[in-house]
Write a protein that binds this DNA or RNA. Structure first.
Lengths: 124, 124
DNA sequence: CTGGATCCGATTTGATACTG
DNA sequence: CAGTATCAAATCGGATCCAG
């Protein structure tokens, strides 16, 4: 089994490495929203209603540090900050799209309905 | 944003649903090993050296409960248990393969060597 | 408006001991 | 050999307050 270190953490396979970069609950949803538009902090926050302030800032920070998005600060008052996707981030969109489609397939397979406020199973 | 319930947990998108089924540190590596062969508990354990006994049993249990693998117990002493991949698990292999390839791409992009050599850490 | 820091409970994971 | 139980450590996430 291949194993390697990155940022002082030991990884056992490429899947784990990829998931540490763009995995977790929020990174993919954030990247997905930035895939074809520049957005301000508040816009992203509004677009992902359930994310907390703490999680959004920390996840944006990590995505920026690892080069998936870029951050542009306008020196105005009040502050204005715009986030946009980078080339590396665009590459991630490809796999996110694949995972998303697989997720939709799985939901169907498990009989889960993708509808707001509806919590029932589909009869087979 | 679509949202739905499954097993009393609230999901906000298909990606999150998929990752909850086959994500985490160990599920994909386990499925990957079972993709074309039947293996006993001890064989999987040996093949994934760093996984702890507790994590392997719990992850195998979850994968079984959600239909990605099946478990066959031989009523002998000492116990013999074989794990094999199901149709649903095979479907997962497709996306795992894609994520794995993306991970390899990312590693190259980040300049990480897929060898047991110790790579230099980056400052945060 | 954006972001950082702190407290703290919840969840996850590892180590270890025990069982048939 | 395969699996279960328990305790403790580590990590994660939410709420809240402060700052430029």
């Amino acid at each position: 089994m291949p194993e390697f270190l990155y940022k002082n953490k030991l990884y056992y396979n490429p899947v784990e490495f990829a998931m540490d970069r763009i995995g977790g609950t929020w990174k993919m949803p954030i990247l997905w929203r930035l895939k074809d538009k520049v957005m301000r902090y508040g816009e992203v926050k509004k677009d992902i209603p359930h994310i907390t302030h703490k999680m959004l800032t920390s996840q944006l920070r990590e995505l920026e540090e690892e080069g998936f998005i870029s951050r542009k600060v306008y020196p105005v008052v009040p502050p204005k900050v715009e986030y946009s996707i980078t080339r590396r981030g665009k590459k991630a969109i490809t796999i996110i799209d694949a995972i998303r489609n697989y997720g939709l397939h799985l939901m169907k397979d498990f009989g889960v309905e993708e509808k707001k406020s509806v919590k029932q199973k589909k009869s087979k």
